[in-house]
Design a protein around this nucleic acid. Structure first.
Lengths: 334, 334
DNA sequence: AGGTTCTGGGTAATCGATTACCCGCCGATG
DNA sequence: CATCGGCGGGTAATCGATTACCCAGAACCT
């Protein structure tokens, strides 16, 4: 329990702290005999080092921070897992925080990460404009890459999915199924991807002559609950559209549940699509047609951009919109 | 970008670093005039402090680390979210790591957290015995509480669910539905809860005269995939049992999927139960009967025990097995 | 043999904030 | 009027590891 420091190890091994540090980090050659002494002393004392002190001196922590809007959304947890994997290969650790879709909490997390001197940050911003100030500031302090969503006017890398292409795929598919009217359920939060998905929905439905009734654009949040209530509203409002397009899978799952309890058959009475392809999208009743995000690729690219920023600070911000793919399941007719 | 330190602030405000520190932390009274000077200087320079240096000196970080076996398992993410909430109220932050069900990675995470001087650790151990050494060591270094699962022989608090009671509920319910034969699908990893669930399954089926065929105890991992393959094996092996009891919801969802693709009707041909009550358990086809864990209470208690350990180090390890509840849905006949 | 380079290892400065200790000043008290 | 206590604020030690700089001896050249 008594803290054992490098000094204790040095004393026990009969060398200086400098030598202990060198023996352990390999920063400079050390004779085999001394190295052995040190290792023995470390063992005997149970020395484990003080990462804080080390970080202070070296001013790096070999840790990157990641901030996501929600930790219970499977899309983000998949992304987090992929990022962690990618970092692992570089010998870095991940420090994960949730902003719980709250810009204030997000700012606090950012400050905390910067204060803790993480080497870099991967963030999926909460809000398209409300997050700008904090992210701008953080991006000025250390390497930062945005994933999935981005805020405008910040000089930083971004990697995500091509939202317009995604909605082109979805709407095209629905059109091929004979859909003539559609509704869209999304989140109120004006994040970049939310906006792009709404815009994509509107432009592609217009292009293909699919009608979107006024009031058929429902904005709430990315959650099962919202999907359920939004669908209930649609059901109450009057004639159903041919298809309900959802901005993420959680919403879509809520929609399916609402349909099921209301006795509305999917896909017979209405087609439903999601977005993300979370693991549970294949298990719903009926299984969900959805857009698969290339989340592993997003994670890999994000980490690559970060490492690049570590090596060569000044560079042109990259914007990588990776291609999504459509996964057709029973909710649009199989 | 240039790092601005407390010294810069002190110079700009025309005071000493000690005064700046006091003005900002409120550790000692400072005249209003000086405080104002300091605040202004902080603003102008964009000073944000160096958490590392502060942590080194104060030897605390106001951060607790949490390690879970999987970050893509909704049960754990719910737990994490609850813990984060509870910590928030105390002004502490959460540093989340995933051990990916790998004892070696788990040990590495533990070392890293200790080296980073988190104030305490919340951990759900990977393995009943393989995790013991590392956790023992960590528990000797700082306050540590185990959640959900625990390793034996470690002098630390634990809070989780009453697994035996949970299986009493499940098996009792199935018995009431007329079940005479049952199978159990669980994880191979010998964690405490896994073992207790198997043991509970066996004792309660025996007590109620429910037959468990040899080979009807399938051990793999906590995942949808394993649930699916395990069920496929059961289907291939011969006559179906009346019920399939699963050690967690992910397994159960896999089981349902396997049944669906094999054309086996649930609950007509076989009853299926899960464990955890993750949000998706209500959305499957059919909705899943499962055991609800009191995860919010588990989180609250864990944080309470941790804070208690911060204040008064030496205390008798607590073991809190909270009561679960049964959520009956269509997968057992609704 | 004398000079040069290498090598292993020690000394002490350093990272940036906190805080123990000290000091001068002011009002209050006997 | 001398003394005391408190208060605001400064000086410098401290946290623990890393590393710039230095040195002695060995090895290596002409």
């Amino acid at each position: 329990m008594a803290k054992v420091t490098i000094r204790d190890v040095a004393d026990r091994a009969g060398v200086s702290t400098a030598t202990v540090s060198r023996a352990l980090s390999g920063a400079k050659r050390v004779s085999a005999a001394v190295e052995d002494q040190v290792r023995r002393a470390v063992q005997e004392l149970g020395y484990s080092g003080n990462g804080i002190a080390s970080a202070l001196r070296r001013s790096r922590t070999d840790t990157v921070g990641m901030i996501v809007p929600s930790i219970v959304n499977p899309f983000f947890t998949s992304l987090v897992e992929s990022v962690e994997h990618a970092l692992q290969d570089e010998g870095r650790q991940l420090f994960l925080c949730s902003s719980r879709s709250d810009p204030q909490l997000e700012e606090q997390r950012l400050r905390s990460l910067v204060a803790r001197q993480v080497d870099g940050i991967v963030i999926s911003p909460v809000h398209g404009t409300g997050s700008t100030a904090a992210i701008s500031w953080a991006a000025g302090e250390l390497p930062l890459v945005q994933v999935d969503r981005y805020v405008t006017g910040v000089d930083s890398d971004w990697v995500g999915v091509d939202d317009d292409e995604a909605l082109r795929l979805v709407v095209g598919h629905l059109s091929g199924r004979g859909v003539r009217t559609a509704a869209f359920i999304s989140s109120r939060l004006t994040s970049s991807s939310t906006e792009l998905r709404v815009a994509g929905f509107q432009s592609h439905t217009a292009r293909l002559g699919i009608a979107v009734a006024p009031g058929a654009l429902l904005l709430g949040e990315y959650s099962i609950d919202w999907g359920r209530t939004a669908m209930q509203r649609l059901l109450a409002a009057g004639p159903l559209p041919d298809a309900v397009v959802c901005a993420d899978d959680l919403i879509a799952l809520g929609v399916l549940q609402a349909c099921s309890t209301a006795g509305v058959a999917v896909p017979e009475d209405v087609l439903v699509t999601g977005f993300d392809d979370i693991p549970f999208a294949a298990l719903s009743d009926p299984p969900l047609t959805t857009v698969r995000q290339p989340q592993a690729a997003i994670a890999t690219e994000a980490v690559r951009l970060l490492s690049q920023a570590f090596r060569e600070p000044p560079h042109e911000p990259a914007r990588l919109a990776l291609a999504p793919s459509l996964v057709v399941r029973a909710s649009t007719g199989g």
